[in-house]
Design a protein around this nucleic acid. Structure first.
Lengths: 172, 172
DNA sequence: ATAAACTTTCAATTTTTATTGAAAGTTTCA
DNA sequence: TGAAACTTTCAATAAAAATTGAAAGTTTAT
């Protein structure tokens, strides 16, 4: 397979994966493009390679910077901005996990906490109210397990990066 | 809080979570409704409680059955069908993990395998091709790790259910 | 066989989400 | 300061996804 064809297939595949994850196809494609580009790319480069508009590139690149997956790179003597993707896939996974934990786990845990205590009412039997609270309690315990697991993985990765960094600083 | 309000909040929250996961809001809401309903519900019940059309209920209930999250329940002497949601949240999580592994991990792994070998070409330096293959290789290793992890969790859960089942069969 | 009671399908419609592109805004340099 | 080289915004538009509802299909009972 030729490199260009391989790149296209990867961008397409990563885009499809993205849409299953609630990330827009284009955002995932911009990420894919930057992931496999050795050098940082300008807005124009991205426009051309993905055939999308300037506004669209700008929007998606900024969203990716919010996730921490892409960085702005300035070159001396160049006015325009270049963008480079985080290449360490381990770090990419950690950043995504962190963001999804914040965006998804936290809101549902808040809701679960709020609705757990159901007041007795004329409309509802004691048993019904208890069954509801039990179901919610189970979901809550599970969400807490997921949250602690995510926290552990994120922490482990941060330590791993820290130790890598320390080794770089004090070689030998 | 009153039970009805609590139920609505849960259905809304679960729906929002669903859309972040690439599942339609309504499908997640039907799932939420069945998750917190003590009894199985009919199509009409779901239509009324979520204020959606018959066709929509039918579509989403069948999708949920495909995922294994909802079961059809027939009552003697009743012609219509009732639907009940899997209540064990542990099992719910396993079913979702299983389905997502099949739908998402497997396709991207296939693409990664296909594009790894890039042919040398006049257009591309040796170094460029190697850098590409290395990036893809890293992503591939990571995907394999995720796949093995998912398989382990699914296996562990299946064993857990099996052992629970065995205990039920041979108590004492 | 027929009717009643359901479920399923699918073309049309509505709603939501993504995209464009031109105008406005910003930074840099002479 | 002004103009060039960019980036950002956002109202309009396009595209995609979800939803409806009525018609067709199926099952069951008589």
């Amino acid at each position: 397979m030729q490199l260009e064809e391989a790149k296209s297939k990867f961008i397409e595949g990563w885009g499809t994966l993205g849409s299953a994850w609630g990330v827009s196809r284009t955002m995932a494609q911009v990420h894919a493009l930057l992931l496999i580009s050795a050098q940082a790319l300008s807005t124009e480069d991205i426009m051309e390679q993905l055939q999308i508009s300037r506004g669209n590139v700008n929007l998606n690149v900024r969203a990716l910077m919010d996730w921490g997956l892409v960085r702005k790179e300035l070159r001396p003597g160049e006015r325009r901005e270049f963008f480079s993707g985080e290449k360490d896939i381990h770090k990419v996974a950690t950043l995504i996990l962190k963001e999804r934990r914040r965006r998804e786990l936290e809101p549902i845990m808040r809701v679960l906490g709020e609705i757990k205590q159901v007041e007795p009412s004329a409309m509802v039997t004691e048993t019904e109210a208890q069954a509801f609270s039990e179901t919610i309690g189970n979901i809550q315990s599970f969400a807490e397990l997921a949250d602690r697991t995510a926290a552990t993985i994120i922490k482990a990765d941060e330590n791993w990066f820290l130790s890598t960094f320390m080794k770089l600083m004090r070689p030998g």
